[in-house]
Structures are given as C-alpha cells and as structure tokens.
Design a protein around this nucleic acid. Sequence first.
RNA 1: CGGGGCGUGGCUCAGCCUGGUAGAGCGCUGCGUUCGGGACGCAGAGGUCGCAGGUUCAAAUCCUGUCGCCCCGACCA
Length: 508
Amino acid sequence: MAKRNQKSAISPTREEDYPEWYQQVVKAAELAETSPVRGCMVIKPWGYALWENIQRVLDRKFKDTGHRNAYFPLFIPKSYLEKEAQHVDGFAKECAVVTHSRLEMGADGKLHPASPLEEPLIVRPTSETIIGELYAKWVQSYRDLPILINQWANVVRWEMRTRLFLRTAEFLWQEGHTAHATEAEAWVETRKMLDVYADFAENYMAMPVIRGEKTEGERFPGAVSTLCIEAMMQDRKALQAGTSHFLGQNFAKASGIQFLNQEGVQEHAWTTSWGVSTRLVGGMVMTHSDDDGLILPPRLASAHIVILPIIPKEDVRADVMEVATRLKAQLRGVIWNGIPLEVELDDRDLRGGEKNWQWIKRGIPLRVEIGPKDIASDSVFVARRDTGEKQSYKSAEFVDSVGTLLESIQANLLERARAFRQEHTREIDSKDDFIDYFTPANAQKPEIHGGFALAHWAGSAEDEAALQKDHKVTIRCIPHDDDIPAESGTCPFTGKPSPRRVVFAKSY
RNA sequence: CGGGGCGUGGCUCAGCCUGGUAGAGCGCUGCGUUCGGGACGCAGAGGUCGCAGGUUCAAAUCCUGUCGCCCCGACCA
C-alpha cells in the first residue's frame, strides 16, 4: 500500500493525461491493440471475453422480451442506402464501398481490381435499409406483425480518428430491428429496449446511466426520435452507451413495408431499431479503472478469480499446487450469477511480484494467494481489486462466501460510480456559470474539468450548434422524468421559459 | 481535407546537423542466485535503418520522389 502511493502501475495517471491513461490501461490489460489496418482493432482474448459476457447477458434479455436472432448481409446495395434521404446524409461520408469483384495480376507484379460491379456495394454502417427491404417481403398482413429481430454483427464506419473500443472503423455490435402495426406499439418497444440497456448498464456493468431523448442535432439519421443512455466517465465527459430509435414510418415508406390492417386498409408499418456496441467495453474501462489499471465489474469480468501459488522453495511446490488445484475445482463448482465462476490458476514461472501486478493491471476482481503458511493454517490470502483490501480466510469459508464477496465488489463499483457522477453534476442557472463550468484552465492541454450540467434550455438547433462550436458542449439528452424530474424554469441563454432541465456535457 | 511531427532489432528510442558499413534501455532465450508486492548477475539470439531513385570511393546520415503512421482541427456509436 505504501508503495502504491509512490508509483502507479499505469503511467501517466488519470490526472496527468486521461486519454493517454486510457490507452495504456487497454494495452496493459491486454484487452486490444491497434491492427495493421488503419482504424481497426484486434480484440485480444481478455477483451473479447468481456464482449462475450456482454453478449450472453444481453442476448438472454432480448430473448426474454420476445426477440429472435437472425443474420442479414454485410453488403448493402448502394441504391438501398439512397432510399431514405436523411439516412444518406448521415452515413454517406463514412461508408466503405466495394466496387470490384476480382483481382488480376498486373504486369507490375501486383494485384489490381479487375471486374467492376454493376452496382457498388456498401459495407454496412447499419442495417435499416437492407433489413427494411426484407421486412417488406415478409409483411403482408397485420397478422405478420410485429417482427422482433436482433442481429449480432460487425459494421464499418470509416471514421477519421479512432480510439480503441470507443471509436473504431470496424466494430462489433447488436442491432435490433422491429416492425409494428401501430405507432403506440412501436413506441412501447423503443422505450422497453432503452430500459433493457439501462438495466444492463447499471446492474451488470456497474455503470450508472441517465435515460433520455436526443435533440434534433444528435438524432439518428432517419429517425423520428432517438432515445439514449448516457454515462459519465472519470474525466467527467459523457459517453453515449446505447441508443434506441423510434423510426416512425420513415423507413417503412422508404422500403415499402406495408400491410393490410383489420379494416382491409393498406398501411405502412412502424419500425424501431436499437443497438449497443463494443464501445461498452471502453465505457467499462473508463468508469471503473484506476491508476493501477483495469478494474472489472465481477458480473462481466473475463474471469473472476486468479489463484497465485506461492512457492518459496522447490520442495513445497507439489503441496502448494495440489491445494491450489483443489481450490480451483471447488471454486469452479460455485454457480454465481447464473454461471460457474471463471478461475485462473497462474503457475507460470514468473517472479511473484510481477505476476501479481499483471493481474492487477488486468482488473481481475479477486486474487487468491496460496503458500505454505496458508496451507499450514488451512487458509487463503485474498485481495480484492476494487478496494485493495487483503484478508485471510479459512479455505472452506472463502469458497462459501465468494459469491457474497463478488456481489459486494459489484455493488461497491456501482456505488462509487454513482457518487462520482453525483459529485460532478450541477444545476446551473446562469450563462456565466455555465461557460465557467466548461472552460478549462489550460486551453492548450485541457485538464479534467466540468461534468454534467443540468440547465434549462429553450434555444434552437442553431443555438445548440453554436454552443458546441464555441465551448465543445452538447445537450447529451432530454432526460426521462424518472431519472431527473421535470421542473419548469427559464433558459439562461435565451431568457425564454423552459419546461425542464436537460443534460449538458462534453462528450466522446 | 487543412496544420504539425515521425518511420532505425518485438517495444521505446539514440545516432543524421559535421557521410566511413549500427547502438542503448526494456522485452526474449539459457544458466546461477533469488522468490509472501514490480529481483540480480553472467552468457546469448535478434536489424539489407519504410520503399524507390540520385549524389559519392563510400549513405541510417545529403538530395528527389513515394508509401505509411501518429498528434491537432472539421465528422461520428
């Protein structure tokens, strides 16, 4: 503990340089690295396990709410994308386009694209248009509705600047696409899936979120309304962690999703779409980790426990390994949160201190040391990653209480994140205070500053754009009354009346 | 697409200005001593200096071109 105060495992610290700290944490935890392909990342096993856990939990929730998985093509004909005008505007700039189907060896000894496609194909940046095309075929009658489908897939958005997990040219996600007979039903679906995301973020990622609606400027291209969950990272910036879109009849009209209703009248369906991506992994990293590296919420952790055999002398190796192996088997037999505990037994021939630090940096919730002294007293020595606390337990007692211990870590992480968010959320009622709140002391290299500002707003879309341009601040969402109760007041920017406060922040 | 910077063992970089045929630290391999919070010693392996031209007796170093990457801005889950 004394040592930790002198030197942290991750350099620089959050305070010194937050963006660089983030990169170093991802690297030190072996979650992912950049790839030879510009803007694309390689997700390594320890990071991919997180995504697998996210998938497992969410997939269950989707099934429980009546959805089924399917898979649609990676390639979207250019003409499909052209069908919805706003959609085109939103995505055209970041599309990867496939124009040829064959390579031929040229005289220069290099491969050249040979036969041009009749119609260029777009690598999907999202699938509304192609799924709409299929739904149009599938839907004839009101009896065919609703359609409730999800797909787990990769998508490509040719971003100019990328950061591991937070923004990459290719990323993994799920996209739910539903079609309904009535507007009301589609709205219920849109809100329901937002609640699924919010519940997942808080109860599994231990990441508190504010549910709300996007303003026009931040809305999904082609949507009537975009709902979102917004989380606060440790640099006090907002991260949009998930979105659920009410698409109205826009895409149904563009794709021709029509049905005969009970009165025999032809109508357009009402559609929704909703998604979360590998960005969630980045959110988890930035919500919980400290200057010694990653901290994983137990419910999604790549593994829950690592057993570190302590072998001071060769002649105790067999005994220690035997006890460690037995403990591993016992722990794996524990069903926690619906699944068997994932337990690593690290018997690599590395010096103890270095090995220990590797696991700290990888964020594993519990580290269990077993050496001759512990065996003599039938104990294990347990360290928790979130608090750094260390305690000796009788072996049997540890196995019995490990679930409770993990639960306590999970709860502590959520509580800590909530407290942090609360500490950096302020109600602001004057323009000066607002600007002051979001102005860093050092403009060249902005320090961690600001947070969430709850302020009244009655400005226009242009006013909002100006705010973003001048102060890098945006309206993250118009929050749900459940999360932040409505309260009328006066907009400090325009002096006009406002029905409620909205959430302002700098964002990712 | 604008403005900066950089390409040298696996990684981070020095060497370049003032040409003479390549270095350090970390990592890696082996041996020994260590081992309950980031060990140390010794011995090794590993690079046609991004690529292509040019100048020169001689190029990592000078010149021209080219490719790629990073940072800052406009755009975004």
